[in-house]
Nucleic acid binder design. Structure first.
Lengths: 235, 235
DNA sequence: CGAATAGTGTCTATTAGACATTATGAG
DNA sequence: CTCATAATGTCTAATAGACACTATTCG
């Protein structure tokens, strides 16, 4: 028997990873970073989700660590950020038992091009995957993030966080359709959005080669709105 | 510069905690364990969620660790188990930077009384809280679990996992009502449940002092069913 | 004017809520 | 029979889907 409980048993490695989404080129894209090419590193040269070890001296909590990682790769300070889940096992990292805390972030299109880190690059999401083979179990984490995003888009206003400050209803609908990968009915879409007390018109129109569209902006400090139905009736 | 990346920087403590729910005495209850009373322990004698450090030698992954904790306290091997989220910060554990991976489990009533550990006890959930003051940030984790459970009960079949093998529709409705803490319409409830292809009648009736009720059981290997609407229209 | 997109209206289908009505067993 | 609860039926309200129709700009 010892007076103090023993705490120097081996501990898992602890990391935070962030799945960063944005709409770019009319498609859902995700930001990946290339791992260092040194052979001493796991998965040298492979693409991976932005993230890394928790710094117990510098990170106050898990979310602060996620915010730090996000800012380092994109320059963006406060986008929509939600915890996705955690993945931990003896085998997911060749360096030993490790657990990662995964977050997902939604970036407005105009911020997504800004202060990108040199090792970072946008990739189109195809299905729930991305072209390159990902390091660690990041393909699985990405798939979970895409499924969660799609699912929540059915009954929440999350896509509003992917829009620029001012946008038209057809543009918002297009964002929904890109994420869901399926067309929505214009009429039902407009009714839902306008009834949600989520957006307000600004005194401007989007001019184009045809009929101009009303511009809207998010109401101030808007938490995501939850609807009581999904878009589609049961299949 | 070194050949191998450095891995011996300080690591957070890593734990798994499980919020275990069951219906007992016509109420939603949660299983808590009392912490050891030694003054060298954090929160001596306080009630806490079942859980503890990940054993990197014995636990294959996080879920295996959660299953181990659950079995140790209840004897139950495979209930409904879902990841809830993770909580990590410099301050949540006086022993140092720590992160916990939280799960929540739903136990059928008849298994909830069985092989309880000596330090474990059931407590009624009142609101999103429990009477005793909980150790660490476990009150916050419990609150998140209750809110998540309530929210999902609005549009899923999760309460089915709180039922015994055979049950009547009024009994299932009562379980929904206990979790939601609000009455539901019998007619709409029955329509939804019977349309869900979730349960099947068995050739028995529940006898009572009045009209007997049809007994049902869960269809085999049933994943939770998701409905496209919540129970209530928007408030 | 025509082309194209924005925006509205009409009709149907689904399903929840409210609540009335019928069914079945015990005593 | 009465009582209690199970089970069903009827009507309304809300909202999604389908799709037709009108509105407004450019060229």
């Amino acid at each position: 028997m010892q007076e103090k409980p023993e705490l120097d048993f081996p501990r898992p490695l602890t990391t935070v990873d962030v799945v960063i989404f944005a709409i770019r080129s009319d498609a859902l894209q995700v930001l990946l970073v290339q791992r260092p090419k040194a052979e001493s590193e796991p998965f040298p040269g492979a693409w991976a989700l932005p993230g890394g070890f928790v710094d117990i001296a510098g990170d106050r909590d898990l979310e602060a660590c996620a915010v730090r990682r996000l800012k380092a790769k994109t320059g963006v300070v406060s986008p929509y950020l939600e915890q996705l889940g955690s993945w931990g096992s003896a085998t997911r990292d060749p360096r030993g038992w490790s657990a990662t805390h995964a977050y997902f972030a939604l970036l407005p299109e105009h911020t997504a091009g800004g202060a990108l880190a040199g090792d970072a690059q946008w990739f189109a999401v195809e299905g729930e995957k991305v072209r390159p083979k990902l390091a660690f179990d990041h393909a699985e984490i990405l798939q979970a993030a895409v499924l969660r995003l799609r699912n929540k888009v059915e009954y929440t206003s999350l896509p509003a966080y992917l829009m620029p400050q001012e946008f038209t209803l057809p543009e918002l609908q297009r964002t929904y359709e890109i994420v869901l990968d399926r067309p929505l009915e214009k009429s039902a879409f407009r009714t839902r959005m306008l009834a949600a007390d989520l957006i307000e018109p600004v005194a401007k129109m989007r001019k184009g080669p045809n009929r101009p569209a009303q511009l809207y902006r998010l109401k101030k400090a808007k938490a995501p709105v939850f609807f009581t139905r999904t878009f589609n009736p049961p299949g």
